Simulated scan of single mutants.
Amino acid sequence: MPSDSFKNTPSDGRLSRLLDRDAISAWLFLLPALSLLSLFVLYPIGYLCYLSFTSGSFTREGVHWVGLRNYWRLFLSPDFWQVLGNTGYFTVATLIPSVLIPLALAVLLDRAIALRGWLRAAYFIPSITSLVAAGLGFRWLFQTDGAINAGLTLFGIAPIPWLQDTTWAMPVLILLSIWKQLGFNMVVFLAGLQTIPTSRYEAAELDGAGAWQKFWHITLPGLRPTLIFAAVTTAIFTLRSFEQVYVITGGGPLNSTNLMVYYIYEQAFAQFDFGYAAAAATLLLIAAIALVYWQLKATEETE
C-alpha cells in the first residue's frame, strides 16, 4: 500500500484548481473573447509569419515554400532601405514634438482651472477627426495654389511646391501626424499629473524651490510611466501610418515619403508579391512587439 504522502501530489492540486467550479465558470466566460482573439488576431499573425516564408498567394495552389528568400530580398533591396530610412526619420521627427508639446500644454492647462475643460476639448478634437479627412484638408492647404502659399505671397515669399519637393513633402506628413497625436498625448499627461501628490509641490515650495526645479525634480519623475506610455503609443502610431501617405503624397515625390506600411500595401496589392510584403510586415510586427516589451519592462522598473 502506498503511503498517504503520495496521495495528494502537486499535479493533483493544480488539476483540482483547474477543475474547480469557479475556474470552469471563468474559462466559460472568457471563451467567446478568446475565440474572437484567436480568430481575428492570433491566426492572422500566425498566417502572416507563415506567408513570409512562401511565394505568397491568396490561393492554395499559388503558395510555395521559399524559406528565407523574401527576407534576403528585403535586405538586398535599395527601395526597402530607403523606405526604412524614411520611416525612421518620420518616426523620430514626429515622436519628439508629439511628446514635448503636449507635455508643455498639459502642465499649463493643469494650472488653468477655469478654462481647462474647454481647452482640453479644443486640443483633443484632432484626435477624433478622421485621418483621411484631415489628410485631404492638409493636401488642400499645402498644394501649390493652396492657402499656405497664398499666405506666403502676402509676405513676399515665393510659393513653395510643398508636395512636389523631396525636401518639403515629408515635413507636411510629419506636421499632420503631430497635429493628430497632440490632443491624445495631452489628455494622457493631464491624467498623469493628477496622480502626483500636491504635498510634494507644497514641500518643495517650503524649501524655496522654483517652478523649473519643481518641474524637473517632481513633475518629470512623477510622469515617467506616463512619458514611456506616450512615447511608445506615439511610436507605434507613426510606424503604422498609412492614410497620410495614401491621401497626400502617394509615396512621392521620388519615393521620399514612402513609409513602411504604404510600402507593404504597394507590394501586396499593386505588385501582388504577398510573400515579400508579409516578410516586411513581419519585421514591422517585431519592431512593434519590441517597443511594447520595452514599455512593460520600463514601467516595471518605475514601480
Rank of each mutant, 00 (worst) to 15 (best):
F242D: 07
A203W: 09
A93Y: 13
L152V: 12
A280G: 02
L84K: 05
I125K: 02
L206E: 00
M186R: 06
D110G: 00
N8T: 11
L19S: 04
L42H: 04
W140C: 00
A278H: 06
S177R: 15
V232H: 01
W179T: 07
V232K: 03
V99S: 07
F155E: 07
M260E: 06
P2W: 05
R73E: 14
L283W: 02
F215S: 02
S11I: 15
S11A: 13
Q213D: 12
Q164D: 14
F242L: 14
L108Q: 10
N149Q: 03
T282P: 12
T302S: 07
S199V: 14
G88Y: 04
F40Y: 14
E202H: 04
F58Q: 08
R14C: 05
T282N: 07
T59V: 03
T87E: 06
I148E: 04
I128F: 02
R14I: 15
A209Q: 06
L30P: 10
L30T: 10
E301N: 11
P126T: 09
L285I: 04
D145L: 09
I128G: 08
S52H: 05
H64A: 04
V187P: 05
L285G: 01
V172G: 10
L206R: 01
F184T: 11
Y276F: 15
Q244S: 13
S98D: 15
R21F: 08
D165K: 09
A231T: 15
I264F: 07
W118T: 14
L131K: 03
L42I: 15
L34E: 07
F242E: 10
T166Y: 01
L131G: 09
A122M: 12
G137L: 09
D79L: 15
R17S: 13
V232Y: 01
Y71V: 09
L30A: 15
E205A: 15
P44H: 11
N185W: 12
A235G: 15
N70I: 09
I218S: 02
P253D: 08
W162N: 13
M170T: 01
L105C: 13
T198F: 01
T9M: 08
F237M: 13
S127P: 01
L51Q: 13
S98W: 09
D79I: 13
L141K: 11
Q181T: 13
T9R: 07
M260Q: 14
L30C: 14
A150F: 14
Q295W: 03
F29Q: 01
M260L: 15
W72G: 10
L220C: 06
P78N: 10
D4E: 08
A121W: 09
S130D: 14
G62V: 11
A270P: 02
L68A: 12
Y262K: 04
L223E: 05
G275E: 00
L74G: 10
Y262Q: 11
T153E: 12
P159G: 01
A150Y: 14
L76C: 09
S57L: 03
A209P: 12
Y263K: 00
N8P: 05
G210Q: 08
E266K: 11
W162H: 09
Y246M: 12
G252A: 11
M260G: 00
V172C: 06
G252Y: 01
W81Y: 13
V132P: 10
A33T: 09
G46A: 14
T302N: 06
V188Y: 00
I248V: 12
L182I: 07
L254P: 00
P10Y: 04
L108Y: 02
P97M: 11
